[in-house]
Amino acid sequence: MTQARSRIVPPADRGYAPDAEDLAALDAWFRRYDAYAAAGDVAGTADMALFPLNTVTDDSSGEGSARQLDREEYLRVMGGALGDPGDLTMNSTRTPYLLTPGLAVVFTEAEFTVDGRSQRVRYADVLVRTGGEWRFQTMVQGGWGDQAA
């Protein structure tokens, strides 16, 4: 007896290649986000998100975790990280990968200097274009798990 099988086939990859306008729009989006972050304007950064927001991290033992934040929780969590920026400077190098005109994964290598103390970080964001605007929907960065517990 033959069993019927169903198969899900992913859509064909159209091989999307962003143009200069696509890249400029992402660059402008990140400049705006960075300006809010540098000013400690957590509500401004929240206005740029698509909630619920996914966060992915790990802790000092290497145990990974993921959770979703609504706007209120995001404001609380990020308020602790951005709320009092002190003497903050940020230098970032971003590498965007546009999967389609409306989906992007952006890898960032950055150096943050707060009150004269510097640290390097790497993280990734997933951005979704909705309503004609980019919104960040997923934040991925190691090392936040101990603080979230």
Rank of each mutant, 00 (worst) to 15 (best):
residue 30 F to M: 11
residue 48 M to D: 11
residue 105 V to N: 11
residue 125 D to I: 05
residue 57 T to E: 04
residue 120 R to N: 10
residue 139 M to H: 03
residue 13 D to Q: 05
residue 131 G to S: 13
residue 106 V to Q: 01
residue 87 D to I: 12
residue 80 G to N: 12
residue 129 R to Q: 15
residue 27 D to V: 02
residue 61 S to K: 14
residue 49 A to M: 09
residue 97 Y to Q: 14
residue 72 E to Q: 13
residue 108 T to R: 02
residue 120 R to Y: 07
residue 110 A to L: 14
residue 83 G to Y: 05
residue 62 G to P: 14
residue 22 D to N: 14
residue 44 G to V: 09
residue 94 R to L: 15
residue 116 G to L: 13
residue 47 D to F: 00
residue 36 Y to A: 12
residue 34 D to Y: 07
residue 90 M to F: 12
residue 41 D to A: 01
residue 121 V to D: 03
residue 56 V to I: 11
residue 12 A to D: 01
residue 63 E to V: 12
residue 28 A to H: 03
residue 100 T to Q: 00
residue 55 T to R: 03
residue 122 R to P: 00
residue 110 A to S: 15
residue 46 A to P: 07
residue 41 D to Y: 05
residue 110 A to D: 15
residue 40 G to W: 05
residue 135 R to Q: 15
residue 69 L to N: 01
residue 13 D to N: 12
residue 144 W to A: 14
residue 89 T to M: 06
residue 15 G to D: 09
residue 36 Y to K: 06
residue 123 Y to L: 15
residue 47 D to M: 00
residue 129 R to K: 15
residue 42 V to P: 05
residue 65 S to F: 15
residue 56 V to Y: 05
residue 19 D to F: 05
residue 42 V to D: 01
residue 10 P to G: 03
residue 99 L to M: 13
residue 113 T to G: 04
residue 41 D to G: 12
residue 27 D to W: 02
residue 7 R to S: 00
residue 87 D to R: 12
residue 69 L to F: 03
residue 120 R to A: 14
residue 113 T to Q: 11
residue 37 A to W: 10
residue 13 D to E: 10
residue 28 A to D: 11
residue 104 A to D: 00
residue 27 D to G: 10
residue 83 G to S: 01
residue 54 N to D: 14
residue 29 W to T: 03
residue 8 I to S: 09
residue 59 D to N: 02
residue 29 W to Q: 08
residue 53 L to H: 05
residue 98 L to Q: 15
residue 13 D to A: 09
residue 73 E to C: 06
residue 6 S to L: 04
residue 82 L to F: 14
residue 13 D to R: 04
